[in-house]
Amino acid sequence: MREGARGTAREGARETTAEEAGRRSAALVIEEALGFLYPAALRAAAAVGVADQLADGARTPEELAAATGTDAPSLRRVLRLLATRGLFEEDGRGRFRLTEAGDALRSDAPVPVGPAVLMLTDRTMWRPAGELTRCLEDGGSAFGHIFGMPFFEHFARDEETAAVFHEGMAAMSEAENRPIADNCPFPGAATVVDVGGGHGGLLLAALRGRPGLHGVLHDRAHVLAGHRLDTEETKGRWSLHEGDFFTSVPPGDVLLLKRILHDWDDEQCVGILRNCRRALAPGGRVLVVDAVLPPGNAPHQGKTLDVMMMASLVGRERTESDFARLFDAAGLRLSRVIPTPTVLSIVEGVAGTEPSEKSAGEPGGAG
Rank of each mutant, 00 (worst) to 15 (best):
G140D: 12
R333P: 00
D266L: 05
D306M: 02
L293A: 02
H166L: 08
L313F: 06
I260E: 07
S335M: 08
T304D: 07
G139F: 09
G35Q: 09
Q301G: 08
L64A: 01
A101Q: 11
A205M: 14
A291F: 13
P115V: 07
E131L: 09
E19T: 15
R178V: 04
D122P: 00
H166N: 02
A329D: 00
G49Q: 10
L37R: 13
L280P: 13
E89F: 02
T70Q: 15
L132N: 04
A189T: 10
S141Q: 07
V78G: 01
G349E: 12
P179W: 09
A129F: 06
G198R: 09
F96I: 11
R157A: 12
G92L: 08
E100W: 15
L105I: 00
I272Y: 04
P299D: 08
D266H: 15
A163Y: 06
L217P: 13
D306G: 15
G57D: 00
G212R: 10
R85L: 10
F155W: 07
A55M: 01
L257R: 14
L255S: 01
Q268M: 11
T353K: 12
V288T: 04
N297Q: 11
R77L: 07
S141L: 04
G365W: 06
H218Y: 04
R77Q: 03
L82Q: 02
R10G: 09
L256Q: 04
T161L: 10
A205C: 07
L120Y: 14
R220W: 09
A175M: 06
A129N: 14
W238H: 12
T16Y: 11
I338W: 06
G197H: 07
A58K: 06
P185A: 05
G69T: 03
G198P: 08
F143K: 10
H262Y: 05
L34Q: 14
D306A: 11
R80A: 05
V337H: 03
S312P: 00
L256F: 03
C269A: 08
T17M: 09
V216D: 10
V29C: 05
V347P: 13
P128S: 14
Q301M: 13
H227T: 10
D266C: 07
L203W: 01
E131V: 02
L202Q: 08
L207Q: 09
H262F: 09
V337L: 07
A65K: 13
R80Q: 15
V48M: 03
V50T: 01
V288L: 03
W126H: 12
R277I: 11
A109P: 08
R220M: 08
F151P: 00
G92T: 01
H199L: 08
C269M: 01
R2K: 11
W126Q: 11
P187A: 03
A58F: 01
A324H: 08
A21E: 03
R127E: 15
A104D: 12
A18E: 09
H218K: 05
E233D: 13
A329C: 04
T84H: 06
T340S: 09
E267V: 14
I338F: 06
A72Y: 02
V289K: 12
L28G: 00
G361T: 08
A65C: 00
M119T: 05
A291N: 13
R178S: 12
P251C: 02
E62F: 02
W126R: 13
L344D: 02
E167M: 10
L87S: 10
L42T: 12
G102W: 05
R178M: 05
T133M: 06
C276T: 10
